[in-house]
């Protein structure tokens, strides 16, 4: 990930927006009777996974001071969440949810490539790296 200490985390913000939309779409899929999938374990699964996605993207967006390794871990878990939710949406034939997850993956890439790095670097590691260089 690029280390940019300053600037707006556009990717994280986009991911947050997508997470909110995905959670709403998952809720609609879960509770909207007559869609063929309502109240099934599959929709409960995406409801939980999109809720977790929202939590993760909130952390990425607002908890900028967290340790960098934690930011990386959350980003990694978010990627898994996006991929899993996307697969579930595909198998549930929940097209709009699938589209939102697709955009979420783009947002994740933007975050990974362009967003300023989160929080503090590990001081010891930084010194070692500097010494090595």
């Amino acid at each position: 990930m690029t280390n940019k200490a300053q600037g707006t985390a556009y990717g994280a913000w986009l991911l947050l927006a997508i997470s909110i939309i995905a959670l709403i779409l998952a809720a609609v899929a879960t509770f909207n009777e007559g869609n063929g999938i309502a109240y099934t374990p599959g929709t409960y699964l995406v409801l939980i996974s999109t809720a977790l996605m929202l939590v993760g993207s909130l952390l990425l967006t607002f908890a900028r001071g967290m340790p960098r390794w934690l930011g990386g871990l959350i980003a990694f878990l978010l990627l898994l969440d996006l991929l899993g939710t996307g697969l579930a949406a595909y198998l549930l034939q929940a097209e709009w949810l699938l589209v939102s997850i697709g955009i979420g993956l783009v947002a994740w890439l933007v975050h990974a490539i362009a967003d300023p790095a989160t929080g503090k670097r590990d001081r010891t590691m930084t010194l070692r790296q500097e010494a090595a260089s």
Binding site: G36, I37, T40, P41, G42, A88, L91, L92, Q93
Partner: peptide, 8 residues
């Protein structure tokens, strides 16, 4: 086939 909401 549909199970748990998922379409095979």
């Amino acid at each position: 086939v549909q199970k748990h909401g998922f379409y095979m």
